Computed example of a mutant assay.
Amino acid sequence: MNLNATMLGQAISFVIFVWLCMKYVWPPLTALIEQRQRDIAEGLIHTENASKELELAKANGEKLLDDAKKSANELVEQGNKRRAQIIEDAQAEGEKEKARIIAQGQAEVESDRNRLRQELRAEMSDMVIETAQKLIARNLDTDANRDLVNKLIKDM
């Protein structure tokens, strides 16, 4: 009977131990396990959402990069067009300035030519008059000399 009483005492102790564990130890452990499972599930959901957001961000980043490249190319293109226009404007302005300088030079040449002609005529007239005076001094016929001088002046 000793053996039975010991076994019965151990069985009762074991049942009380199990009952105490089920009442006070098991519920907090299951609650912790359930909380951990919920945390892991939420973490997985957050990870999936984060990976989707990362893909979206990569796609948006690539789109923004493409847009930036396009706008940079457009700016370069506009700069090239503006440079070409400035060069064309400068060439046109150079041509106008060249034409103005040539016209001014031609006007100066023509003015100098006319001034020289006037000077030559005046000088020639003086020479003719001087020659006429010498002829008059030699010849006393003034009418013939006068006709000669008038003829010389008309020929100039």
Results as ranks from 00 to 15, higher is better:
I101F: 13
L148P: 00
W26G: 01
T30R: 06
D67W: 01
E95C: 06
D66N: 14
Q37C: 05
D39M: 04
D89N: 12
I129N: 01
L3I: 15
I45S: 09
D39W: 07
A137H: 07
S125C: 03
T131V: 10
N139P: 00
N4Q: 06
E34C: 03
Q85F: 02
N2T: 05
Q104E: 13
L116P: 00
A72H: 05
N145S: 08
A92Q: 11
E123H: 03
D147W: 05
Q104S: 08
Q78H: 07
T47F: 04
P27K: 00
A92I: 06
E93V: 04
T142A: 11
L54V: 08
K58Q: 09
N150I: 06
D89F: 04
I16N: 08
E55C: 08
N73S: 13
L8Q: 12
K63M: 06
V76G: 02
A68L: 13
A11T: 11
V128Q: 00
K23Q: 08
K96M: 14
Q35L: 09
D143M: 09
K154D: 05
G9V: 12
L32T: 09
C21E: 12
L152I: 08
R117F: 14
Q78I: 07
C21K: 12
R146I: 06
L148G: 00
A107V: 05
I102Y: 04
E110M: 07
K96H: 11
R115G: 04
Q106I: 11
A84Y: 02
A50H: 12
K52Q: 07
T6H: 15
T142C: 06
R82D: 11
N4F: 12
I87S: 05
I33W: 15
D66E: 12
L29N: 03
K23F: 14
A137Q: 06
I101R: 15
R100P: 00
P27T: 01
E119V: 01
M22A: 11
H46W: 08
M127K: 00
W26V: 13
Y24L: 10
D141H: 12
W19C: 06
I153D: 01
D147F: 04
N145E: 06
W19M: 06
Y24E: 14
A41Q: 03
A31I: 09
L20C: 08
I45C: 04
A72G: 05
R82K: 12
I129C: 00
L54I: 10
A90P: 00
K81F: 03
V18M: 08
K81D: 02
L135I: 12
L56H: 05
L152Y: 02
L44R: 11
G61S: 02
M22R: 05
M124N: 09
I101Y: 13
Q85S: 04
M127D: 00
D126K: 00
Q85C: 01
Y24S: 07
L64T: 15
K58V: 08
E34L: 10
M7F: 08
I86A: 14
Q35M: 07
G105D: 10
A57K: 15
R117L: 10
Q133C: 05
Q118A: 15
A144L: 11
S71Y: 15
N150K: 07
